[in-house]
Design a binder for these strands. Structure first.
Length: 206
DNA sequence: GAGTTGATCACT
DNA sequence: GTGATCAACTCT
């Protein structure tokens, strides 16, 4: 497939966060840069649900320069830095005033595989295992796609960074489980708000 | 288990 | 303004 997938309409991002999270599975995340184009099929996400969710950065309605974009309209990018050296990419969901988002945790490389391998300083040997090391994990994925703080707040229905239809003939079978590494979130850590495509080898933690 | 740095918060 | 704390992770 050499054609670059077309972006979804802005309205695609509206709807309840858990629905949008499931709907994102199978979609394609595209990033066009001067260095080339790259895209992944989204296979794993996590939902973060507003002021009530103790696992969310917006818990308690915390409005700071970092979380600001979560309080805005759906369909924008929430990118944050973590552990001093990594970035995580989220799709803002829900309406203005409902600070919710979906973290994209893993994807399957479908375009620009060599470019992504260079960015990740990874050697591809043709195995699924080596391909999955490009984009299986939230910070691996942002490194492969060259997503960082510059993309904070960008609209995701228009280039250079956008969501596109995945062109799947059948909707993927979805599995759910608790979100990863939010032990501090108490009971909220147990909510099954991690979603992935069942059996997909590019998921970060099967 | 170390690495690495900015956001956040509780203080002056 | 200053200093302490630590994070929605990755690699060995």
């Amino acid at each position: 497939v050499d054609a670059i997938p077309k972006p979804v309409a802005r309205e695609w991002f509206s709807g309840p966060t858990l629905e949008v999270a499931e709907r994102l599975l199978g979609m394609v995340l595209v990033h066009l840069t001067p260095a080339g184009r790259a895209a992944v099929r989204i296979v794993e996400v996590e939902a973060y649900r507003g002021p009530e969710d103790q696992g969310a950065h917006s818990f308690g309605g915390r409005l700071t320069p970092r979380t600001r974009v979560m309080f805005g309209e759906a369909g924008h990018a929430y990118v944050f830095q973590i552990y001093g050296m990594h970035f995580c990419f989220n799709v803002v969901t829900a309406g203005a005033g409902r600070p919710e988002a979906v973290l994209v945790r893993a994807g399957e490389p479908i375009l620009g595989q060599d470019l992504m391998a260079r960015r990740r300083r990874t050697v591809l040997d043709g195995t699924v295992r080596s391909r999955s090391r490009l984009t299986a994990g939230p910070a691996r994925l942002t490194e492969a796609l060259a997503i960082d703080r510059r993309h904070y707040g960008l609209p995701l229905w228009t280039p250079p960074l956008y969501i596109a239809d995945g062109g799947l003939s059948n909707p993927p079978e979805i599995a759910t489980g608790p979100r990863i590494n939010i032990d501090y979130a108490g009971q909220w850590a147990e909510r099954p708000w991690r979603f992935w495509i069942r059996g997909n080898p590019y998921v970060s933690r099967p």
